[in-house]
């Protein structure tokens, strides 16, 4: 399944400074944001883990949106990723 990944507000710094990328996820498995975060941690993260994650979730202060909707409305970690989803990570922690 194809998805788009989007970084903003400085979160891109943690991912090799790339703001937008297209990804192909293995169709055989069910993807939740929980498992996808693990995938990101293992495959995409280029900076220190603690700057992105806390426990199994994102570090507080990093906003997560799916198709421009706050993940708090979608079940957060339990949200099941759908084909063509755009997942955005926006840091509130940078600059001011």
């Amino acid at each position: 399944m194809d998805i788009t990944l989007d970084f903003g507000g400085g979160a891109e710094v943690l991912f090799n400074n790339i703001k937008k990328r297209e990804l192909k996820l293995d169709d055989g498995t069910k993807w939740t944001l929980r498992s996808f975060l693990q995938y990101m941690k293992d495959n995409l993260l280029t900076d220190r883990l603690e700057l992105f994650m806390q426990g199994e979730s994102v570090r507080p202060g990093i906003l997560v949106l799916v198709n421009d909707t706050d993940w708090e409305l979608l079940g957060e970690l339990d949200y099941e990723i759908q084909p063509k989803d755009t997942i955005s990570f926006i840091s509130t922690l940078h600059g001011g």
Binding site: G8, G10, D68, I90, H94, G95
Partner: peptide
């Protein structure tokens, strides 16, 4: 709230600078 400021900027597509000093 900071969260709302960031959401507002995101939804309004305002361009801002976010590199740490």
């Amino acid at each position: 709230y900071e969260k709302e400021i960031v959401m507002y900027a995101h939804f309004k597509k305002l361009v801002y600078f976010s590199t740490e000093c």
